[in-house]
């Protein structure tokens, strides 16, 4: 069987890349997507939360 374990890759000074077998839910428990890869905002500045919109580059996010 193909190993499709969910992978969370922390991109340096950028978003969190999620792929593989996962389900993404909002805070109400409603499903957002099962389809990866998705890039989730880590810097707190995205206008498209929970997704990354490239704002980390403008804000000079380090982490």
């Amino acid at each position: 069987m193909e190993d499709n374990t969910a992978q969370f890759k922390v991109i340096a000074n950028g978003p969190l890349q999620v792929s593989g077998n996962f389900e993404l839910f909002d805070s109400e428990g409603e499903i957002i997507t099962r389809q990866g890869p998705v890039f989730l905002c880590r810097c707190g500045m995205s206008a498209d939360k929970p997704f990354c919109d490239g704002s980390h580059k403008k804000s000079g996010f380090r982490g």
């Binding site: 969910a6 839910f25 957002i32």
Partner: peptide, 9 residues
């Protein structure tokens, strides 16, 4: 299916 559940709090 060993799915990861990802919840945005």
């Amino acid at each position: 299916h060993k799915t990861a559940r990802v919840k945005v709090m």
